[in-house]
Amino acid sequence: MKWLTQNIGTVVDLLLAHLALAVPAIVLSLLIAVPLGRIAQGQKWLRGPALAAVGVLYAIPSLPLFILVPSIFGTGLRSPATAVIVLTVYGVAVMIRSAADAFGAVPESSLAAAVAVGYSPWTRFWGVELPIAVPVLIAGLRVVSVSTVSLATIGSLTGISSLGTLFTDGFQRGIVAEVVTGLALTVVVAVVLDLVLAGLGRALTPWTRSSQTGRA
């Protein structure tokens, strides 16, 4: 505790730096994976190969990716942008599968009904498919969120600041309290983001609760 109170400023800075890597990566994963997942689900021939391709992405170990991304994208080895790209690659790899499953689980009857009452493909996507897909999308995004928060710490090995810096610095200087602080905070961030996403999922799908509250 003594170490923490003496270094609270550094810890807060690293916590903010960590969020600045993880949150954009989670949001980008969602924004990239949802349209791709929808397209993969819509074109039956595309689904298998597309999911196999992202499976390969997911098999790539993270530390080497932190090193290859700068040489491919021209971002700096120690730049936060490198971390955001790496984390987004893994996030998309997980999220595309969830998105394809989410849109695949939309009942045919709902789609047909929407067409029958005059929805265009575009309005049907926003008004029918996306809302019905929300629970599965959120479930996938929660998996992405937890693993992104944990993976962001790896960047500290190449010099990208995050809560992982507490691990490398604590290890080199032999300060157990510093490493423990990093571990605890990383888990706390993961849990808090998970709760936020779970709450968001509930807020976006009020109809799933209507039968319990008696409004239906």
């Binding site: 928060v149 944990s150 790896i154 571990l183 888990v187």
Partner: peptide, 19 residues
């Protein structure tokens, strides 16, 4: 299994390394 996913590997490794 879900909780284990939240634990950062590097943190576990450095903590055990110190121990």
């Amino acid at each position: 299994a879900g909780a284990a996913r939240a634990i950062p590997t590097l943190g576990l490794l450095t903590l055990l390394g110190l121990g």
